[in-house]
């Protein structure tokens, strides 16, 4: 534990009456691509602000490369790269001016570390004389990442880099992260998109200021305690309600073009789904066992405990 690149021990933080973080314990290894997965209000941004020394925790300790976030904040600022959730570059400086500004405040130059950002920066270099405010969303994202990398950080903090970004740009962004990881940089990334968890080495699922679980995406999926059945019929609109009325039902919810059905009974026979729907005059019924996803796991953890579930109404 002690040789982790980033270590959080019992970190808590409140804003007035709101508990933003409750006793967070995480240890992230050097070179790891680690994801904090959760919706708005989970506490991701507060966590990143504490780790980047912009905010002090109420209690607990956190270290980055061995430096304490409160006592040694100056050392952390030299070795951390941070891309905040909101676009925070200078809109009225050009692309190149923004980059050289960030290089110079860290006493380096674009030339010195160009190799680090080359893959990313070459996409926007043709527009280097354009003002940052005039860039498209995808290009802003690439510039912000270049600026966070230009001083060769040991740890990179990316707070929701893909929020509001379309599926194609999101995929391209994750390809860039994989390349960075192969250069040995420790990367912490937060995202509300559950499908992005699969692209991380390990993830923490966060909700309402709590870490619900920490593990590799595969281990989280393998730990899913019950079978999931993907159900379809000719009456998709009625399917949710009609499946609810099966006595062994644990949970029923839409999942893309199917409905996921979970039973709490260990001896559950999926044929009983077909029989039940048949009796309610559904046709074209298909019931297939389905592999759980991180989103299925996330909802399971939310259901398990009220403290994770701020929207509390279950249906």
């Amino acid at each position: 534990m002690s040789n982790g690149a980033v270590i959080l021990q019992n970190i808590s933080k409140s804003y007035k009456t709101v508990k933003a973080l409750t006793e967070i314990n995480v240890s992230i290894a050097k070179g790891e691509l680690f994801g904090f997965i959760g919706p708005d209000g989970a506490g991701k941004t507060t966590l990143f602000r504490i780790l980047t020394t912009l905010l002090n925790p109420d209690s607990g300790t956190a270290t980055v490369e061995g430096f304490d976030t409160v006592k040694n904040y100056k050392s952390i600022r030299n070795i951390a790269g941070y891309m905040p959730g909101r676009f925070s570059l200078y809109q009225d400086l050009t692309v190149e001016e923004n980059l050289s500004f960030f290089a110079s405040i860290y006493n380096t130059t674009i030339e010195e570390n160009y190799h680090l950002i080359a893959d990313i920066y070459k996409h926007i270099e043709p527009f280097k004389h354009r003002k940052a405010g005039k860039l498209s969303g995808g290009m802003k994202q690439k510039l912000a990442l270049s600026c966070a990398l230009i001083h060769k950080p040991e740890v990179l903090f990316l707070d929701e880099p893909t929020t509001g970004v379309d599926a194609v740009s999101r995929m391209e962004f994750w390809e860039m992260l994989k390349k960075l990881r192969s250069q040995g940089i420790t990367i912490l990334v937060s995202t509300p998109y559950m499908d992005e968890a699969a692209l991380c080495d390990r993830v923490a699922l966060m909700q309402n200021g709590h870490v619900m679980t920490i593990d590799t995406p595969n281990a989280i999926i393998n730990a899913f305690p019950v079978k999931i059945y993907a159900v379809r019929s000719n009456r998709m609109f009625h399917l949710l309600n009609d499946l609810q009325s099966i006595p062994e039902t644990e949970a029923v919810y839409r999942f893309g073009d199917v409905v996921h059905y979970l039973s709490h009974s260990k001896t559950f026979d999926p044929l009983s789904i077909t029989r039940h729907l048949d009796s309610l005059s559904h046709t074209e019924i298909t019931v297939n066992q389905s592999v759980p996803t991180i989103e299925d796991s996330f909802m399971l953890y939310m259901r398990k405990s009220d403290k994770f579930n701020i929207s509390q109404h279950d249906n």
């Binding site: 959760g38 919706p39 708005d40 989970a42 929020t163 509001g164 509300p192 559950m194 909700q207 609109f237 949710l240 919810y253 839409r254 989103e295 996330f298 909802m299 939310m302 259901r303 579930n309 701020i310 929207s311 109404h313 279950d314 249906n315």
Partner: peptide, 20 residues
């Protein structure tokens, strides 16, 4: 316009029930 951005997966589904 992107009504469910950043919303948790349970609420997201409740939101779609309202849409239906």
């Amino acid at each position: 316009d992107e009504p469910t951005g950043g919303v948790d997966p349970v609420t997201r589904r409740q939101f779609w029930e309202m849409i239906y």
